[in-house]
Design a protein around this nucleic acid. Sequence first.
DNA 1: ATGACGCATCGAATGCGA
Length: 258
Amino acid sequence: MKITTWNVNSLAARLQHVLDWTAANPVDVLCLQELKLTDDKFPLDELRAAGYEHCAVFGQKTYNGVAVMSRVPVRDAVKNIVGFEDDSSRVLAVTLDTPQGELRLVNGYFVNGQAPGSEKFAYKMAWLGGLNAYLRAEMARHPRLMLVGDFNIAPEDRDSFDPVGLKETIHHTSEEREHFRQLLALGLVDSFRLFEQPEKSYSWWDYRMLGYQKNRGLRIDHILVSEPLKPAVKACAIDRVPRKWPKPSDHAPVTVEI
DNA sequence: ATGACGCATCGAATGCGA
């Protein structure tokens, strides 16, 4: 079973890319972030025609918005972080029934945070604290759990094209990385690092300054799996192909196989 | 140091992303 996370930077602008990519990569489940549309504008019909009959959507006008589109039934959808008040549509949890048993899938569009010291950064820190507490409870109920999405955190220096020049800037701060480690401390594992990977592997590149062409990127899109799932993980990879298409999202899809 | 690119918003200029 293949599960993918992809920040599409507007589903309206990227629908054809999603359709083209899933036609070539018919993954079982695709977790989307930054839909930038309301639920009534979600392209259910097109995705159903592409084989994704089961969609859970948590949209919002202009900003944020997350969805899970799936070939297999999804149930028990929960929106946002239980116990954390949030105006933004950022988290959507669902349960999948797999041959190995049920799997709780938490899809998140983490707060960007703009810059350390800003109000948005404080929001990011509070949000991450709320997420951690929520996941602790979710994992107690669902031992087989996967946390996917756009984390907006480069966990280690090797996840950034310029860890020295960007030291302690957004995505690179000690505080953000500590929050990432606190997620791992819950018993989650970064599935990407379970496997040998190319050096300078990133999942996001700035649109500006030829960021992609120069591979000036960050690895900020992640798939974390709980310990009970870890032995089942067969592969995890970033697909840079759609980042080369005309009018791409600035993020690449990341896929795990279990 | 700044802005650079792309998307969204009622209509131009601005907010936001990362």
